[in-house]
Design a protein around this nucleic acid. Structure first.
Length: 508
RNA sequence: GACCCGGUAGCUCAGUUGGCAGAGCAACUGACUUUUAAUCAGUAGGUCGUGGGUUCGAGCCCCACCCGGGUCACCA
């Protein structure tokens, strides 16, 4: 404890001093009559309605919050406290509080939680404020929060930080401190919750049933990715954290639950970057008797409804771009878009031609890549980064899509779409493959790739094939990367900014 | 996994050819009863990411490692 910094040492001493004065620094509860924002609003309403007294005072209020700023003036002080709704200014005067109560304020610091009682009024600079008549300490802060000085633009409400808390690493590792000093970070996560709520509401209203499927699986599937591997001791068996919900949800469609969805975490043992976290939130839904065309229409309706309800606008600022969420979204066939980018019809190019093109662009990792993989690589390099506005990319090569039905009339393709926003894949959908014999062949092809060293190729799942053999109706299915959608809708540059506790390395 | 940039006071950052460790904010003491990046005067606060090495002397140079950010690869 002799390692404590000077600042923390001082706070411990204040804690002791409070106790020696008979003040308990960690209270049990506090009954508030209002919130910071409600108090300001109701004061403004009373003011407009002429319901203030002769002295300009409004009603009495009780509220609790964290002290986020302090301006002492000898025998008076101004402070702001912040609660879940926002912040409100306090005015503390010695002649109102009395000597003992006012002098005890010397033991209060930024970051402390207090409960106050007082009367609303408006200062001569125009800010609605509580003239505090009583205050009580609710929790003493022993570690200084990294509050910067905040300049709030009176017109725009925009916050400018001076000497603030900007170290990304510490902000992610100590998200509690990041949240405590950055109201706008709290807002991102409120918006995230709202987005997920609206996705759920949309699917509920469309007649989908929310279900829960295993996160801990004896076999993993439904996507091409490496899994996290773990072990069940009693069963003495290797198990995997799910990389997708797909195969379980489609089993449910076989069972007659013909519209199902799940919003949950998936886990992929892959790299970490601006748009990838090892655990991430996926929404998946499956709708019997629909195909991918139907699902494109559904995705458009969902996007518009969610964006309308959450943001109230259809233009989303994202970095340097303005993204217009106005249906119908652009639709391009993957092969056509690539033909355009290559200035040559892909169908006229041989595998060797494609490989030459890829090598000319110095695209790495081409060893053993088949035609589908080459097309995918070239698409990823030439087309994908430009897909800023909402765009459906259609009809992927069959070898890339082992769970999707063949494209009608073009058996080398599949009925699949990916919807891109801001250069990121947000939705991925198929007309689901429901022919059990075809599915078995596709799995076997994947096993071939696996044997050849592709550890992301999908595994043959006999139980899933058995389910398909019982009969799955024609079904359209969609996966939605929730975190990425939240990034776009909250204009955050990294997936870590929309995940409360992103995966980081240990610091020991 | 590769490359680039970074890690110095609670926070944000300076730190010259290698020569006593600096500022602003926060803290502390004092002044101040309508301020709001409050103001004014003063005081204190440091294993310079970790471990080695070179040197009379290392925040600075060399080696290794840890952590983060960015770019790329993989992937949603």
């Amino acid at each position: 404890m002799d390692e404590l910094s000077q600042v923390m040492q001082v706070r411990r001493e204040k804690l002791d001093e409070l106790r020696s004065r008979g003040i308990e620094p960690y209270a049990y509860n506090f009954d508030s009559s209002t919130t910071a924002v409600q108090a300001s609003e109701s004061f403004a309403t009373a003011e407009e309605g002429g319901r203030l007294d002769e002295g300009g005072d409004g009603e009495s209020v009780r509220l609790a919050g964290r002290i986020v700023s302090w301006r002492g003036h000898g025998k008076s002080a101004f402070a702001h406290i912040e609660d879940g709704s926002g912040s409100i200014q306090l005015y503390l005067k010695k002649d109102v509080l009395g000597d003992e109560s006012f002098d005890t304020l010397d033991l209060i610091d930024l970051g402390d939680w207090i409960g106050i009682e007082g009367v609303l009024f408006r200062t001569r600079t125009g800010e609605s404020t509580v003239r505090v008549t009583n205050w009580t300490l609710l929790s003493k802060s022993l570690r200084p929060l990294p509050f910067g000085k905040v300049e709030v633009d009176a017109d725009t409400g925009e916050r400018t930080y001076h000497s603030g808390f900007s170290d990304q690493e510490t902000r992610y590792r100590q998200r509690y401190a990041d949240l405590a000093v950055h109201p706008e970070v709290r807002d991102v996560f409120r918006t995230r919750a709202h987005i997920i709520r609206e996705i759920r509401t949309f699917l509920d209203d469309e007649g989908f049933l929310e279900v829960e499927t295993p996160a801990l699986q004896p076999l993993y599937g439904g996507a091409t990715a490496r899994p996290f591997v773990t072990r069940h001791n009693t069963l003495d068996r290797t198990m995997y954290l799910r990389i997708a919900d797909e195969l379980y949800l489609k089993r449910l469609v076989v069972g007659g639950l013909d519209r199902v969805y799940e919003i949950t975490k998936d886990f992929r043992n892959e790299g970490v970057d601006r748009s990838h976290n090892p655990e991430f939130t996926m929404a998946e839904w499956y709708q019997a008797f629909s195909d991918y065309e139907d699902q494109m229409e559904l995705v458009e309706r969902m996007m518009v409804q969610v964006v309308d309800r959450v943001t109230g606008t259809r233009t989303l600022p994202f970095g340097d771009h303005d993204i217009s969420v106005e249906p119908p979204f652009r639709r391009i066939r993957l092969v056509d878009s690539l033909s355009e980018a290559l200035d040559a019809d892909v169908d006229d190019l041989s595998d060797d031609d494609l490989r030459d093109r890829a090598e000319a662009l110095s695209i790495p990792e081409l060893d053993g890549a088949g035609r589908g993989k080459l097309i995918d690589k070239l698409f990823g390099e030439l087309v994908e980064p430009g897909l800023i506005q909402p765009t459906f990319v259609l009809d992927h090569p069959k070898e890339l899509s082992p769970l999707a039905k063949e494209k009608r009339g073009e058996p080398h393709l599949t009925e699949r779409f990916e919807m891109y926003l801001a250069g990121m894949e947000i939705f991925n959908a198929f007309s689901e493959l429901n022919d059990p014999l075809d599915q078995r062949e596709r799995f076997q092809a994947q096993m071939g790739l696996r044997a050849a060293g592709d550890d992301e190729a999908q595994q043959l799942d006999e139980d899933y094939l058995r389910a398909l053999e019982y009969g799955m109706p024609p079904t359209g299915g969609v996966g939605l990367g929730v975190d990425r959608l939240v990034m776009v809708m909250t204009n955050q540059p990294s997936i870590r900014d929309v995940i409360l506790f992103p995966t980081l390395r240990d610091t020991e």
